[in-house]
Design a protein around this nucleic acid. Sequence first.
DNA 1: TTCTATGCAAACCGTTTGCAAAGCC
DNA 2: GGCTTTGCAAACGGTTTGCATAGAA
Lengths: 144, 144
Amino acid sequence: MTERDPQILDELENDLRAEGVRITRQRMAILSALAGSTDHPTAEELLSRAREQDPSVSLATVYRTLSILVEGGTVLRNEFEGTGARFELADKPHHDHLIDLDTGDVIEFSSRRIEKLQEEIAEELGYDIVYHRLELYGRVKKKP
Amino acid sequence: MTERDPQILDELENDLRAEGVRITRQRMAILSALAGSTDHPTAEELLSRAREQDPSVSLATVYRTLSILVEGGTVLRNEFEGTGARFELADKPHHDHLIDLDTGDVIEFSSRRIEKLQEEIAEELGYDIVYHRLELYGRVKKKP
DNA sequence: TTCTATGCAAACCGTTTGCAAAGCC
DNA sequence: GGCTTTGCAAACGGTTTGCATAGAA
């Protein structure tokens, strides 16, 4: 993924203020770490990235802030296999993930057709889908 | 799902012996708890079910046995949201899961078309899929 | 000034592990 | 008999929480 528009931080801040969320130095540092990340960092990774901007941030605050952001829909929490939770800014259309088993790299993809089929399956089973989780775990294809 | 063929336990035992896995009272109790479950029990649930047959089973042994069974492909480990890991005997064709958000019920389904699309997506991204995880979280559809 | 957010350290929960004793082959 | 498996309890790793203090509005 490519860099984000630098003014996204201001937008995030405004949105949060509008929701009545207090803006603190630490929260801005965490938001900024999120906005500056194009991968899917863990809480620990976010902690160290946020500390570059504000060394006073603690891990507890990272978790508490992430809870608020996830709650409000600003951030998405992923639980891939093997690691702790990984977070990403919810500023893109819905997508799923392919995890590279050798490098841990996370690749985003989306398929309208898969989404459609999921809906059809739920429908047949008499359910409404609230959300779903689709993760592919794989390796770079070998040359034949 | 319906009851399993009662002789599945013998088959499981034979297969494991053939793999060189030692059979103990505790392992049989755990296998039997698995074979007698049509839901997707957690380690704790398996512990209490296994203890009906052999009260000496401990949680550590449940986990150690499950590791061996998962390793050998006899058992599948699922990590749905909200609970600890949930296990099931790997005696059915591949399937994915729909989790009822209100009751916690787990419904199995499978879709050849979704599997195919996943393969196509991985192919386009230059990957071979090793395994995947697809979970739908939903609620029983309301009458309109 | 009031009320919320923070850092710290302790608690938490599901899972794993070290050890001496018990049990399979 | 030799080596594996067990129960127990302690350790683990990621996450959450209680508390007194610092800070936002």
